[in-house]
Amino acid sequence: VQTVGQWLESIGLPQYENHLMANGFDNVQFMGSNVMEDQDLLEIGILNSGHRQRILQAIQLL
Rank of each mutant, 00 (worst) to 15 (best):
V1I: 13
Q2T: 10
Q2R: 11
Q2M: 14
Q2H: 10
T3H: 05
T3C: 04
T3K: 08
V4K: 00
V4R: 01
G5W: 04
Q6S: 12
Q6N: 10
Q6M: 11
W7F: 14
W7C: 02
W7N: 05
L8V: 01
L8T: 01
L8E: 04
L8H: 00
L8N: 02
L8S: 01
E9V: 07
E9Y: 07
E9S: 10
E9A: 13
E9C: 07
S10M: 10
S10Q: 11
S10T: 11
S10Y: 06
I11A: 02
I11R: 02
I11M: 07
I11V: 06
I11D: 03
G12L: 01
L13T: 02
L13A: 01
P14S: 09
P14L: 06
P14D: 05
P14V: 06
P14E: 09
Q15P: 00
Y16G: 02
Y16A: 03
Y16H: 02
Y16F: 00
Y16L: 01
E17G: 05
E17M: 07
E17Q: 08
N18C: 09
N18D: 12
H19A: 14
H19P: 06
H19S: 11
H19Q: 13
H19C: 13
L20Y: 01
L20P: 01
L20Q: 02
M21E: 07
A22D: 12
A22T: 11
A22L: 10
A22F: 07
A22K: 14
N23I: 13
G24I: 02
F25V: 09
D26L: 09
D26K: 13
D26G: 09
D26F: 08
D26C: 10
N27A: 08
N27L: 13
N27G: 07
N27M: 13
N27F: 08
N27Q: 11
N27P: 08
V28H: 05
V28Q: 05
Q29F: 10
Q29V: 10
F30P: 07
F30A: 15
M31Q: 06
M31R: 06
M31V: 12
M31D: 08
G32K: 15
G32F: 13
G32R: 15
G32V: 15
S33H: 12
S33K: 14
S33W: 08
S33P: 07
S33C: 10
S33A: 14
N34G: 13
N34Q: 13
N34M: 12
N34A: 13
V35S: 13
V35K: 14
M36E: 07
E37T: 13
E37P: 04
D38T: 05
D38R: 03
D38H: 07
D38N: 06
D38E: 14
Q39G: 11
L41V: 01
L41N: 03
L41T: 00
L42E: 11
E43L: 08
E43D: 14
E43K: 15
E43R: 15
E43P: 00
I44S: 06
I44A: 10
I44G: 02
I44F: 09
G45C: 01
G45Q: 02
G45M: 05
I46K: 00
I46P: 02
L47S: 14
L47A: 12
N48Q: 07
N48A: 05
S49E: 14
S49I: 10
S49D: 10
G50A: 04
G50P: 05
G50L: 05
G50Y: 04
G50E: 03
H51R: 02
H51W: 01
R52S: 02
R52T: 00
R52I: 00
R52E: 02
R52C: 02
Q53Y: 09
Q53T: 13
Q53H: 11
Q53F: 09
Q53K: 14
R54I: 09
R54M: 07
R54F: 03
I55P: 01
I55M: 10
L56C: 06
L56T: 05
L56I: 09
L56W: 07
L56F: 07
L56E: 02
Q57C: 08
Q57T: 13
Q57L: 07
Q57F: 07
A58K: 06
A58V: 00
A58Y: 04
A58N: 09
A58M: 05
I59Y: 10
Q60K: 15
L61S: 14
L61P: 07
L61E: 15
L61I: 08
L61D: 14
L61Q: 15
L62G: 05
